[in-house]
């Protein structure tokens, strides 16, 4: 796991691994996979809470569990910046990872593709491919979104692209 900070590494190893290789078009196998996804997300959320590092909320937006919505946040200079989080489970999941979207930040940073999809580091996809099908949604959040927020939110705040919701001292942005 070259290129990852020790914190991400140690957190990742504590998230339960998944075993069922199934995507949203695979019927009963997908239901089995979905159960494993929930178990991993429950364990990860519990772990974050007990480490005083709670940083996201996510839940399925449809009964099939193919679309997920929630929130994620990051503390910078003692202020909390919160963003809507959404993604679809791709038809080729888990061979391909879900593309995590922060729609509110679309167009505000270079580190993003169209539609607010976050631009992952060159280390993410190789690690995901190597660990198919053992990594799930929880792993994608831990390896993809957490480092992205840590790298980009300070830049977005310092450059004035985003403002804290209580910050009324300056004129509101577009």
């Amino acid at each position: 796991m070259e290129g990852w900070d020790p914190n991400t590494k140690s957190t990742l190893t504590q998230i339960p691994l998944l075993t069922t290789k199934a995507g949203p078009r695979d019927g009963a196998a997908w239901t089995q996979r979905l159960k494993e996804e929930y178990k991993a997300l429950i364990a990860y959320t519990q772990m974050n809470k007990s480490n005083d590092n709670d940083w996201f909320r996510i839940s399925a937006a449809n009964p099939e569990g193919t679309r997920w919505i929630g929130k994620c946040w990051y503390i910078h200079n003692l202020l909390k910046y919160e963003f809507d989080l959404q993604f679809d489970i791709p038809v080729t999941y888990p061979s391909t990872a879900p593309e995590l979207e922060l729609p509110e930040l679309d167009g505000k940073t270079q580190k993003m593709y169209r539609g607010g999809k976050i631009c992952l580091t060159i280390h993410f996809k190789p690690l995901w491919a190597k660990n198919c099908p053992r990594f799930g949604i929880a792993h994608a959040l831990c390896l993809g979104l957490a480092p992205w927020l840590a790298a980009e939110v300070p830049i977005l705040v310092d450059s004035g692209m985003i403002k804290h919701k209580d910050d009324t001292t300056s004129t509101s942005e577009s």
Binding site: L34, K35, Y38, I42, T45, K49, S59, G70
Partner: peptide, 16 residues
């Protein structure tokens, strides 16, 4: 007890 999908959903919602 952890093998029912609805159960798991409820558990995550409780944490959320």
């Amino acid at each position: 007890s952890l093998d029912d999908l609805e159960d798991l959903k409820r558990q995550l919602e409780a944490l959320n």
